[in-house]
Nucleic acid binder design. Sequence first.
DNA 1: GGGCGCATGTAAGCCGTTACATGATTAT
DNA 2: ATAATCATGTAACGGCTTACATGCGCCC
Lengths: 184, 184
Amino acid sequence: MKENHTPYALLGLMTAGFHTGYEMKQMIDGSLNHFWKISYGQIYPALKKLVEEGSADVKVTSQEGRPDKKEYVITPSGEEQLRSWLLKPVEDLPVEKNELLLKLFFSRNQEKSVILHQLDSYEEILQEKRHTYQSIKEMLLREACPSQDTPFWIITLDYGLATTEAAVVWCEKTKVRIKEMKEE
Amino acid sequence: MKENHTPYALLGLMTAGFHTGYEMKQMIDGSLNHFWKISYGQIYPALKKLVEEGSADVKVTSQEGRPDKKEYVITPSGEEQLRSWLLKPVEDLPVEKNELLLKLFFSRNQEKSVILHQLDSYEEILQEKRHTYQSIKEMLLREACPSQDTPFWIITLDYGLATTEAAVVWCEKTKVRIKEMKEE
DNA sequence: GGGCGCATGTAAGCCGTTACATGATTAT
DNA sequence: ATAATCATGTAACGGCTTACATGCGCCC
């Protein structure tokens, strides 16, 4: 039985000052993007369910010249649930399905040049990702008036940087190793 | 449109000498486990489909005192598909949904001790994982007569080791950083 | 007698993406 | 004109897990 963490993410966003589905989506795309994604197809039904379960209250606001807005606010019950989720230790690591490793594993009969090309293009993607993280981090560090979220944001970015950097180094090493192999 | 790589994994396994659904599952659980998982609920329908599409042939073998066995063999068409998949460069990195980072991000109002506990227990899981990889690698290196797959197997293990190690280091650093923060 | 290994499969259900549908305002 | 932004939602579909179903032989 695997837990679904998405509703907790939405409750968390409510406590962080995001109250409409639209705002939450914007926030996730902008800031949690590298370790959490979500689509409208999930958000709206999930918010509805949170209200049904008493974890959130909703208030519809009419706006002039803008679509109606539904503002969601966490209830005491929702706060309790969020708190106990935050306390619960993480039990299993995300099992990433890694397409590159899968290909590599079946590449024993491929020419070395093909394998090297795979590794080159993968390394390029990794470098891009690393660069993105680095840019966001620098932007945050330059901020005049950092919010109380900023340190936590930087921590998550550092995770991305550390693991991506390690993958780049692995790529380099692996390329050398492949070159040293005898073509059969 | 995201491609489904699972059928290619099965074709790859056929070329590597695994011919029944059962054998393939055993192999994946034993050797590809850290970057690819699959369940019977996927394997059997997928194999059926591969036969329908002409990528594999099947031969039913009756065994005495054992259940019937269906042996799948890759066809020339299947080989062609596998080859062109192996050539195609990987386009997107696996986006891991990371529960720990999600919790951390919403922990700005938590007590430091709670956050530190989260990090401790995460680090423990990471260390276990790292240890598992290390053990398998050492076992492979000690092998008397390594197969031609062994170097590729080690390469994938090194990926797991490198990224896990990086995550451990990040954990340590993050704990220090949290301790240095002012409790508000 | 019970559990494990071998061996194959199906059905229900969850999680999630994508495409579609609507519609006003504002900027180019 | 038309594209982007704001704003909410649904339907179809795909991938995958879990639970269930079957059944023989072997070992303890």
